[in-house]
Structure formats: structure tokens, C-alpha cells
Design a protein around this nucleic acid. Structure first.
Lengths: 229, 229
DNA sequence: CAGGATCCGATTAGATACTG
DNA sequence: CAGTATCTAATCGGATCCTG
């Protein structure tokens, strides 16, 4: 795409980073995804064709490598690409401070579940397997019900009942969970006001909040409420 | 333009920042430009129509304000916009570390002179007015000769002889000056190898290197030279 | 100096269908 | 699972001309 014709390092970096979707693909790689389909789950609105193209560009630019494994291609950040973690971090910090108004379009249930499953603190789980059902109020029928299958080794997310039974059910609107996720609404506050409902053994109801680490940006300090000028 | 449909703060920030040219316009504002023409001198390849459009978008997004003054409109960063300085900084640091290969297109003489004039350390200048002529080897005729008119209060850049006489002349290729500017080539090294030639009183020849602060990214540490994997 | 209005060509990305 | 190929609709941005 476009070059800026400037020797400024900001301009040279922008040539690489400001192409549409690129920063989000990098974010997925920074978050640890290495397989095509995993990366795509983090950018589901991107066509697979376009993702292919962006990945190739990133390889050409030396930000990632592509390796053929038995299970298929594996994408990994190079040293240069890895240092973009700092860029993603600062941009996210700015974003959470100043861009808090979300449209309904932004409240993507599948994305929320994908994010949650990836931030599970495996060490905080009870022994054995735990199945957490999540019900998202008002979501479209096929996006309403989710199951997180958690054990000490991995966290899986399903959009169908995996058939192990349910240990705990969590019910809320997608917006409520997103606000909790982003650190804009306290867990206790949400429970107290019944915006977040938990059903199951009281011990699990108490513990569940420790199973998730929330968004990496949840703890970023927010600006004082006053005009932006 | 495009929305990503994600609640992730990185995605929300990218919606604002990854539109073409936007980051460079922000960079100009962070660097201190407030007038339309000054901003445009920092992004000369951007059409004025497009710059107008981007500025309006930035106002709508609450990153800058536009104020009508007697001399004309003045653009200024809001608190939110001002915090983008950190984003510009991190991106520039990454850029100078990993994107050192510049095309001829990137070596824009006018941009270099504009950058230099803006990073003059007024306090380091000799008393009174100093005129520094700059000759850029191999540049197109109308981009070869420049004059920096420096005094304790301001630094001006002209592409014509302002008629005050010349105290010191600096001659080099644009590429050499850019590499010095970016911190990739030492001043002494350039002088010793005659890539940078100075003509004028020996005292000024010795002092001139202190008049410029170089690029804000000149002092960023560079990666060790080895493969990027 | 700081734009507004238009037109038009180039680029882009989504949708769709197909492949090993 | 991980793409490729193709077509089309939409968008974007440069050029040009005009304004107060």
C-alpha cells in the first residue's frame, strides 16, 4: 500500500502498521496465537482471504515467520515483531482511557468468549474439570449459550453443550460482561445489582471471579471525569 | 471509514489511528504545529483537501480543537490527543530500531530542512543573527540550496537567499544528513570522511553541531546486528 | 491563508466458489 | 485446516478549480 515518502521513523513504522487490520493481527500474535484459525478467531470480521494477505505481508516485512509443521503452518513473531508488544500495549492503554463508548456492533459475544477463555488463570481453578456455562441475555439465539470447559491444563470454549454437565452458570448481557472485562464495572457491583447472575454451588459462585484475569487493560487508570479540552 | 466491531481497546484505538496519514498529522501536532500550513509542511505529500478532512475528523473525535483566531484557525491537541504523544513515541522508537532502510523517495530535502529548523537549540547559538547555508548534493536544483536564519528568538528556514550574508555553509548529500539526523552516522565520522563539509570560521565549524538536537529518536538504542528470527 | 466542491482513477476488501 | 482465484462494490485520495 501507500508509502509516505518520509525518513521519519514514525512514518516508516506507520507504513507497516496503519494498514487496516494489521495492528489487530499483530495483537493476536502478541496474545500468543500461532495457527491461522486461532488468529482468525481474534479477527472474525476479517475475511480469510484478507488475513492470508496480511500474514504474507508481515512475513515479507520480517515481523513474523511462517513455518510448515505437521499440523499445518505456524506463525510466530520475530524479534522485531515481538517488540511491537510495546506498541500494542501503549495503544491499548490510550484506547481504554479515551474510547469507552462502544456501539452494539462492538459487543461481539464470540469475541468475548474467545478472550475470556484465553485469560483463564488455570492455577486458580478447582481440581479436576469445571464446566462453566455462560448465558448472554439478548444475544442472537446461536450466540446466547456458551460453555467453558476448564481444567488444570487448558481452557476450551464451545458454542454447544459439551455434555459433561454444568458446574456453574453465569448469566448477564454481553454489555455487562464486556464492561466487567474492560474494568469499567466491578464484579461485586454487577452481582449486587443482579446485572450478573450466578447459579451453582456457593463456593464456586464465590471463586469464579478469580478464574479470569480480565482484559490486560482492565487495570489501566482512567482520566478524571471532566471535559477533554 | 471502517469499524472493526470489537470492544478491545486496541481495536477502538486503531479505528481512530490507523487511517492513512492520521498518525503523521498527530505527530505534527505533538511536535507543536498549530496552523494549517505549518502542519502541512510536515506532511507535504498529503493533499490539502485530505488534510482538511483529517483535521475535521480529529476534531469530531475529540483529539484536537479548532479555534478561530485573528490570524486564522488554530489547531490544538485536547487532553486525549496530547496523550497520543506516548503512542507516537513508542511507534517511532520501534521504527528507528527496525526500519532503517530508506528509499530515495524517503529522503525529502524540504522535510529534512523543516525538521532541522524545528529542532534548533536556540540557547546554543552565538549572539545575534547567524545564517547557515545548507547545500544538498545531488538534490534537484530547486531543492539544493537552503538557508537557516537563526537567532535567540526563532529559527527560520528559506529556500532562497534571505540576503543577510552567510556565516557558515554546510554541504552533504541528503542521505548523509538524514543518517546523521536519525543517529545512524556520527557527526565527527561524517566530517572526518568528508561526507559532511563545513565552510566558514573555524569556531562556527566547531560549534554548529551543538545547534541542532537531531531527531527525537536519534538516541534510541539499536538492536544487535544479527538475524531477526 | 485556509479551505470547499467536484470529478475521476486507483485501490481495497467482501463475497463466493474452488483446492489439496 | 489453510488457503487460492475471481469478480464486484465501495471507498479513497489526488488533481483541479473555486472561494472569502
Amino acid at each position: 500500500m501507500g508509502e509516505y515518502g518520509q525518513f521519519c521513523p514514525v512514518a516508516k513504522a506507520a507504513e507497516v502498521l496503519d494498514e487496516r487490520w494489521t495492528l489487530l493481527v499483530v495483537r493476536e500474535l502478541v496474545a500468543g496465537s500461532t495457527r491461522f484459525n486461532d488468529i482468525h478467531r481474534g479477527v472474525p470480521r476479517m475475511s480469510r482471504t484478507l488475513l492470508t494477505k496480511r500474514l504474507r505481508t508481515l512475513v515479507d516485512q520480517g515481523l513474523i515467520t511462517r513455518r510448515e509443521e505437521r499440523q499445518g503452518p505456524v506463525y510466530e513473531l520475530t524479534t522485531a515483531g515481538n517488540e511491537l508488544a510495546a506498541v500494542v500495549d501503549v495503544i491499548g492503554q490510550w484506547g481504554i482511557r479515551w474510547l469507552s463508548s462502544l456501539s452494539d456492533e462492538d459487543l461481539d459475544p464470540a469475541l468475548l468468549m474467545w478472550d475470556m477463555h484465553r485469560r483463564v488463570d488455570l492455577g486458580a481453578l478447582p481440581p479436576g474439570r469445571t464446566v462453566l456455562a455462560v448465558v448472554l441475555d439478548h444475544a442472537a439465539p446461536q450466540l446466547r449459550n456458551w460453555w467453558l470447559v476448564l481444567d488444570q491444563h487448558e481452557a476450551d470454549v464451545c458454542d454447544y453443550d459439551p455434555g459433561f454437565g454444568t458446574d456453574l452458570t453465569m448469566q448477564a448481557s454481553t454489555g455487562t460482561l464486556v464492561r466487567i472485562w474492560r474494568g469499567e464495572l466491578g464484579w461485586d457491583d454487577a452481582v449486587r445489582t443482579s446485572r450478573l447472575e450466578l447459579r451453582g454451588p456457593s463456593e464456586l459462585r464465590r471463586q469464579v471471579r478469580t478464574w479470569f484475569q480480565l482484559s490486560p487493560f482492565a487495570t489501566v487508570s482512567r482520566p478524571e471525569a471532566r471535559d477533554a479540552g
